[in-house]
Design a protein around this nucleic acid. Sequence first.
RNA 1: GUGCCCGUAGCUCAACCGGAUAGAGCAUCAGCCUUCUAAGCUGACGGUUGUGGGUUCGAGUCCCUCCGGGCACGCCA
Length: 552
Amino acid sequence: MPVAMSAEIRSHLTQLFTAALAKVAPQQPATIIDFERPKQATFGDYSCASAMQLTRLLKRAPQQIAHELIGAVPESEWVERMEVAGPGFINIYLRPEAKQHVVRTILRAGDAYGRNNRGMGNKVMIEFVSANPTGPLHVGHGRQAALGEAIAAILASQGWEVTREFYYNDAGQQIANLTASMRARALEARGEDAVFPEDGYHGEYIREIAAKYVAADGNPDDLEAVRKFAVAELRREQDEDLRAFGVVFDNYYLESSLYADGRVAAVVEALAATGTTYEHDGALWLKTTEFGDDKDRVMRKSDGAYTYFVPDVAYHVTKWERSFKRAVNVQGSDHHSTVTRVRAGLQALSIGIPPGYPDYVLHKMVTVMKGGEEVKISKRAGSYVTLRDLIDEVGRDAVRFFLVSRRADSEFAFDVDLAKSQSEDNPVYYVQYAHARICSVLEQWQAQYPDDARDLETADLAATDSQRELHLMQRLGDYPDVLETAAREYAPHQLAFYLRELAGEFHSYYNSDRILVPEAPTRRGRLALIVATRQVLRNGLGLLGVTAPEKM
RNA sequence: GUGCCCGUAGCUCAACCGGAUAGAGCAUCAGCCUUCUAAGCUGACGGUUGUGGGUUCGAGUCCCUCCGGGCACGCCA
């Protein structure tokens, strides 16, 4: 049931069992061959449940099929023995060589270990954050930023050509609102009376920016100037926060540009031409119900303005036209109603976009906990906690690691006290500490054994075969598989969990066996193992945007 | 009310196409530093996977009922 296994071993075992299957059940495609890691060590290193899946087709008892398969498996230098167990599992016990092999593979591959070319250089766009320029980024955006970045990095590691994009809703009602709020605060700053808009933005930051505007001799009643100033100022702030978080976008796409270059109007025309629209009550509607929506949606309001959903569709058309055959949108689940709508709009156009386009990763909200209580208010933003508050308080690495350490669709309780603790409780430091420890051992190796050859690729691992060492090796071998699954499911938390477990295996090993022993062959074997471990820790942390410190 | 998501140990969370005895961390308790970083290690305790049914060799996982929580249901974004 465990998640991952070594790619080398999997492909080796698959070959063996495919050959066996060809003899036992020639008509059966080899795709049913699969392996897993049993929970219990007594069930072997790997097990195969395929015999049970064959019972119906072959009309024989699963145990019997299992025995036939074992009899048909070719000899292998990696396989020690195989047994039939329980309802028909085939348990496979490997020789140490099979596990030791990965150490050399890692040392040879270095930074490239875990990478592959499954994506075959195809383009994928990850859209995330996409905050409106109406205020500072909040922790929810932080979750998106951490998720989006990690997903992007993981997909890139699997051979995809990744573009990270930020979509600014810099047109429409909310911006008008922002402008009106700014105007009111600017007038106040000049000591004049002003009516603050009913649904305006109440955060303290509006006052700050308005004061800046007034100080620069801005005219509060020049709404276009106010709008420009406010948006520019807020975008700059958001950029600073993202930089502080270590998040970099390849491209920013402005909603306003979709109006400016006629794409919004073009989409409306194109939709009208397909006969999926109609006029009603002075508005133009799209029959999204024909594409799975529960009600039709207005495209153009009776006042002539477009609803936000039209530029959304137009925007996604540009993704397709920019030849992103795959697109992933990371969004808060409070926007989940747009999923059906956007897809419906794209389908209605019938321009060859597949029905499930784009993919969505919806994440739930983050609540910030401190001293056992929920923190709701930031002094600057008013009604929410900003990403910057969090980074300043607990540090970038901890925020990054925490925010990707849970499934996106689980609600997130961010425990500030835990994230801040510089000691045993903190999973970030736990993983980083493993890395730093290894670096420290290597430093002492240099000092104590200056005559040792530094090239560990050639180290003999025959004696590196204790239970702990073999476990650690097996875990190292799992890494490529973990990445592959995390990429397929857009689930970076699997990588975070893996790294925690890997660090655990290492700490355990470190405490039980001394690395720098006098016997050179043993020493070199152990060093090779921990250098490989360090490499995987470093590679994995890198994908999550967390540093791998050499000293702590 | 309708739709989507979630419900797993006291707390926070894992569990790849359905696989064997459901796993970690925290908390609690008991141990380990004249040896490479104790930000660490070893062990113990802890469960009717919200409820009730169904599907099958096998269900935390798939289907249905109900309960509880979140979000969305606008000619806002």
